[in-house]
Amino acid sequence: MRISVYRYNPETDAEPYMETFDIEVSSETMVRDALLEIKERDPTFTFRHSCGEGVCGSDAININGSNGLGCVTKIAELKEPVEIRPMPGMPIIRDLVVDMTQFFQQYRAVKPYIIRKDPVPEVELKQTPEERDKLDGLYECILCGCCSGSCPSYWWNPDKFRGPAALLQSWRFLADNRDQGTEERLDELDGPYKLFRCHTIMNCMDVCPKGLNPTKAIGHIKQLMLKNMV
């Protein structure tokens, strides 16, 4: 199978270029396996990866124009020639490796932790199965960046718009009955940029390798803001 990969080494290349490899694949070969094969042929080829089973979130890349995890994408199911590029909207460090500093900065900015005002009991805080169910589809986020890296609003304003990944986490805590930081979370998200750059383009939910839906979470935040306003 013909695979074309994005190459750029700032130390040696004036311009990025695409390099093509022919790789033997089976129906079980993942994109990551193919990339490892390429790296074996050319050890200078560089990409991130770790767990190989879609739980660590290291190998988010752009595969045939759509962001996804290399380790859980079967290459035989893709249209040939397969084109592999770094995630768009993030500065490129080398080959498929992008600089995700801004992405994590936005994550930190939404205060992704339980805020408690009241003292906690010496046992667990109670949560009914129904209350716990509200966190499903939210807490599973692996911070791979596929969503934010596919969001035009995030491309245009990565410094000001929190992006789908961070906003999904914001809602994860707003939706948690143990959290008591609703007011300050909503205040923090106010203004035209942090939340409201979302124009419901919905690329985020299309690409999420864990099947999560940040657009819906953003909608929930807006509704809650409205409810708190009136």
Binding site: Y113, R116, V123, E124, L125, T128, P129, E131, D176, R178
Partner: peptide, 17 residues
């Protein structure tokens, strides 16, 4: 319990534990 207070979304029993 401490992890639970940190926000770990443990699965729950009907009694909330």
């Amino acid at each position: 319990y401490e992890l639970e207070h940190f926000g770990v979304p443990f699965s729950r029993l009907d009694n909330g534990k």
